[in-house]
Write a protein that binds this DNA or RNA. Sequence first.
DNA 1: TCCTTTGATGCGAACCTTCGCAACAAGCAA
DNA 2: TTGCTTGTTGCGAAGGTTCGCATCAAAGGA
Lengths: 144, 144
Amino acid sequence: MPHCHTYLKKLRDHGYRITPQREMIVHIIAHSGRHMSAEEVMEKTREKTSSMNIATVYRTLDLLVENGLATRIDLGNGKTAYATGEHGPHVHLVCRHCGSVTEITESDISASLDKIEDIYDFNCRPYHFSVHGLCRNCRDTNTD
Amino acid sequence: MPHCHTYLKKLRDHGYRITPQREMIVHIIAHSGRHMSAEEVMEKTREKTSSMNIATVYRTLDLLVENGLATRIDLGNGKTAYATGEHGPHVHLVCRHCGSVTEITESDISASLDKIEDIYDFNCRPYHFSVHGLCRNCRDTNTD
DNA sequence: TCCTTTGATGCGAACCTTCGCAACAAGCAA
DNA sequence: TTGCTTGTTGCGAAGGTTCGCATCAAAGGA
C-alpha cells in the first residue's frame, strides 16, 4: 500500500527539498509494487515528461535508500534494483540464473547478525544485503 | 601461503588452458595476501609486461572465482575486489566508511543459511556475500 | 510578493565492468 | 616437430552508475 505523501513528508522532515522530479520518482516506485531498475523508473517518467535525467533518478533512489524509505538490491552482473516500503532489516535472495528476487526477514538471520556484531564489533543494522544462489525452479531445470 | 602452482594445476585439471597472462595474474593475486581490484592487478602486470589487457584480468579473476580458487567481494560504490585462498563459505564485512574488509566464516551464519535453504528452497552454497556496515573504528570516530 | 540562500538538476565526462568478434596460441595428436 | 582445433586474448564499444560543475529553483525570510 503506497503512501507517496508519507515518503515525501519524511524527506521534507529530514530537510530535503521536494521537487517535481522527486515527487514523480517516489510516485512511480511506490506504486509499482515491485523492484525497479533506475532505467525502468526513467522510462516511466518519460511517459509524462521530458524533464528528467537518469542521474537524478539514481540520486533520488539513493536518497530514499539512505533514509530508509527504499532498499537497493544487487542483482549481480552490475545491475541494481530498488523498491520502497522496506523499513525493517531484510535479505534478498537473488537467483543467479533467472534473476528472481525473494525477500526474507527471517529472525534467524537476525540472530546471526547479532553474533557478527558481538564477535566482530561490526555494526550492520539495519542490514540489507543480497545472497546469490539458485532458486528451486532453476535448480530443477539445469545443473549450472 | 600462496601456491600458484596448485591454482594453475586446478585450472588445467578443469580443462582450461594455462597462458602467460593467467600465470601472471594468479601469481600476483596469490602473493599479494590481500584483496585486490582488477585495476590493481593490471598495474602490477604493467611492471613486467605490456601484454595484458584489463578485460583479460577480469576474465581470469572471474574464472578463479567460478572455480572456487578466489572470491569476489562487492566493496560498494560499484567497486569489486578479489582474493585467492578462500575455499569454504564465507562472508565479508565491508565498512561503508573506510572500506576495510573483514572475512568471517562463522558457523552461526552457516546455520542461518541452512534455514534459508530449508524454508525458501533456495540454494546458496557455497555462499559468499558482503554485509555492509560500520566497523568499530569508524563507528567511534563519526556518527554517519 | 520578492529576494536570498543553498540544495537539486541537467549535462557531459569518467569510471568500472562486460561483451562481441577477429586474431592468436595452448595443448593434443600424428 | 608440425598442424589442427578451439579456447583465449586484445581491442573497441557499450552498458550501468557516479561525479563535477554551472545553472536552476524550493523554501524561508523580509
